[in-house]
């Protein structure tokens, strides 16, 4: 489990540094695989069949379909990359490090002595770093990656606090993420067609 936590931290850090969209999607893919592996580990510990199913769903949706869709769109956005991000990679990494410290601090405050301390901290750090990326990156694809990172964080949190949600709800959550990704990819295509670029800072016409 600790290895996986390290992989997750690493993926979050890498996301703060990448400026090439394709690399960001690869990192996201690795991160989702680590979350799926965490499901399997928990399944081995608790011997619940439910966990393996969750791992399978994670692989199909978050490590399969969503990265595939993102790769496809990134392939059409050859000239797009994260230029002049709102917060430079160095500062973003620094903020991410602070987020990890904050995550450990929160866990020790709210749930002192919890067994899954590291996994929980990773979950909260992913959540915060995902949010950070949505806020400080201009590219639509980077924001989608940030959103899925956030979602991975919440999923990991559920996994380490309550061993995952009941199956029906979990199915629903996965379905929503899938549809959300589809909707966002469609909108990104439309951004490219209408604005000739997927830089979201162009979206500032609606005001007041």
């Amino acid at each position: 489990m600790n290895v996986l936590v390290i992989v997750l931290f690493l993926s979050a850090f890498l996301l703060t540094r990448v400026t090439i969209l394709r690399t960001a999607v690869i990192v996201l893919l690795l991160q989702s695989l680590a979350v799926a592996a965490a499901c399997v580990v928990l399944g081995l510990e608790t011997s619940q069949f439910h966990m393996y199913l969750a791992a399978l769903l994670t692989i199909i949706i978050k490590a399969g379909y969503i990265p595939a869709a993102l790769f496809k769109i990134v392939g059409r956005l050859r000239r797009e990359r994260e230029q002049n991000p709102i917060l430079s990679p160095n500062y973003t990494s620094l903020t991410a490090a602070l987020a990890i410290v904050l995550a450990y601090g929160l866990i020790d405050q709210a749930l002192p002595g919890v067994v899954t301390r590291n996994a929980l901290a990773a979950a909260i750090a992913l959540l915060l770093i995902g949010l950070l990326i949505i806020m400080v990156r201009r590219q639509a694809v980077m924001q989608i990656v940030g959103l899925i990172t956030m979602e991975n964080g919440i999923y990991l949190l559920g996994l380490s606090v309550v061993k995952g949600l009941p199956l029906v709800i979990e199915f629903g959550v996965f379905l929503d993420i899938l549809v959300a990704a589809v909707v966002l990819v469609i909108l990104t295509y439309r951004l490219k067609i209408s604005f000739l670029s997927t830089d979201t800072t162009q979206l500032r016409k609606l005001k007041g």
């Binding site: 924001q143 959103l147 909108l187 609606l206």
Partner: peptide, 19 residues
């Protein structure tokens, strides 16, 4: 353009909120 801008902001803000 404006409709896509509105939709993008809508999905982003509401999905983050709902997370």
């Amino acid at each position: 353009r404006t409709a896509i801008e509105a939709a993008w902001k809508y999905v982003m803000v509401c999905t983050v909120g709902i997370c």
